[in-house]
Amino acid sequence: MNEFVLIFRNDFQPEVKFSPDEMQAIMQQWQNWMGGIAAQNKLASSGNRLGGDGKTVKPGNIVTNGPYAEIKEMISGFIIVTADSIEEASEIAKGCPILNVGGNVEVRNIIPMNN
């Protein structure tokens, strides 16, 4: 089995506001998605959710404020799954609730460490 990281990206849309009920539903979607991966014993790490605080360090020791600007998107978090192939990992990613709110998922293979 190989490990793949699923990186969640979303547009920063301050104008979009969710009601508490909608947020509850979003939370449940995430929990069920993660639970479903874990139930297949394919969740290698529940990864991290990233906050809005960010800084970017560029060559020449230039530090800019804010998360790295990729167009309008920013990384909101990641998890690690185990799968036989990147296709299988992509199938898992298809269920990710971030896709329901306009976000996307990048699936990347992890280079195994020697030690």
Binding site: Q31, M34, G35, A38, A39, L43
Partner: peptide, 24 residues
Amino acid sequence: EKILQLYNKLLIIEYSPIAALNRT
């Protein structure tokens, strides 16, 4: 709903076949 959420969390901490079946 509560039991489902709890099984989701439990599986994330530690996988076991029985928890996976109970979650389902």
